[in-house]
Write a protein that binds this DNA or RNA. Structure first.
Lengths: 200, 200
DNA sequence: CGAATGACCAAAAAACCAAAATGGTCATCC
DNA sequence: GGATGACCATTTTGGTTTTTTGGTCATTCG
């Protein structure tokens, strides 16, 4: 199938899933939105689930691409970690598709889903890995670091934290700021090679 | 109302909520299990929600009490943090009531619920706070630490992590171990005053 | 007299079922 | 040969009735 048509279908599917969620979106609907017949949609995917996954996969790739533009080897890795974290969250805010789909429905789907989510997570942690490696090269982060594991950890914390604390409230912003500060203090000081005398 | 009767009602309510969840448990059922009439249950609580909250509150207190037995001022606070974290998770495994109720249903209840959950969380973070303060007194943790915020942070991370990763899988244990190691390396190195030359 | 009871009520949930919609296929057509 | 949409088995929906439930309170009991 022609790439342009595939792109169109995936784009419309993304719009639909984003607006109505997985369950409330029908293939007929997507087909109509994309201006093709239902059978054609099934030339671009194996099943509705697969379609959903393809959409998420694209979205995560875009996310990574967006955030990775920040990575400048001349900037200290600590600073990059902070920036990329904020950019990542901002991106999630700006494009609710990922947030909604990743956290809202993804959990309650097929058993195979967990594995695919892991794939997405691994993909999403690539940026953090890059920064970690940069930090090691810069001599700012400890050398004996399980980069892959630590990157996934940081990503999860970022996501978990984001989800855990987006409920509204009066002193919400102040508390969130305190928490962010505490978290970064913890994480960064742990990463720094050796904050002897001068640094603090 | 007599304390023993109140205890009995709360105990049965806990059993019922733990087995069937909040929605699928009826007051009639609890009353029957506790061997009292329905009206009597309402002498021990204001509403079903209140009853649920009282049960959770007790459970959290027991949890704290259980874990706090570990806190021995002669033990290095780093070690205590590790132990209490593992004990806390073990406790959750052993008594699924808390886990189920805190993560399963608590989120989707009344708007007021969020506040009460915060209360419970604050309560649950007391142990961690104690350890943090001990660590500062021992000269092992940095002095300028937002103890309350950091404690809640650590507790949340512990819980979030636990929930996020209890899905089964082949290499589950190995991955979890790696992640735990990475997390503790991050957190502890961040907390330590100054890991100069000797420590590493 | 105060603590405990259970019949009672409005409101919510479950049970039921017919009608509509949905995921997925495939013979047919351009 | 890539695209189509009528077609089918299975779900989901909408509306209705029946049952259960949270909560109350006049009455009873110790």
């Amino acid at each position: 199938m022609e790439q342009a048509k595939r792109d169109g279908i995936l784009a419309e599917a993304g719009r639909a899933f984003g607006r109505f969620g997985f369950k409330k979106t029908s293939i007929d609907q997507i087909a109509k939105m994309a201006g093709v017949a239902k059978g054609t949609v099934y030339l671009a995917c194996q099943s509705k689930q697969d379609l959903f996954y393809q959409v998420l996969h694209r979205e995560v790739r875009k996310w990574i691409a967006d955030v990775s533009t920040l990575i400048d080897p001349r900037v200290p890795a600590d600073e990059l970690l902070l920036r990329s974290s904020e950019a990542g969250v901002a991106y999630l805010e700006k494009r609710p598709l990922l947030k909604t789909l990743l956290f809202g429905e993804a959990h309650s789907l097929l058993p195979t889903w967990a594995d695919r989510l892991d794939d997405l997570r691994a993909l999403g942690s690539e940026n953090v890995q890059q920064i970690l490696r940069l930090g090691i090269k810069q001599g700012r982060f400890v050398e004996d670091l399980d980069v892959a594991t630590t990157a996934e950890l940081l990503l999860d914390l970022q996501l978990a934290y984001f989800v855990l604390h987006d409920r509204p409230g009066a002193d919400h912003d102040a508390r969130l700021a305190r928490r962010k500060a505490a978290a970064f203090s913890l994480v960064l000081n742990g990463l720094r090679v050796r904050p002897d005398a001068a640094g603090a």
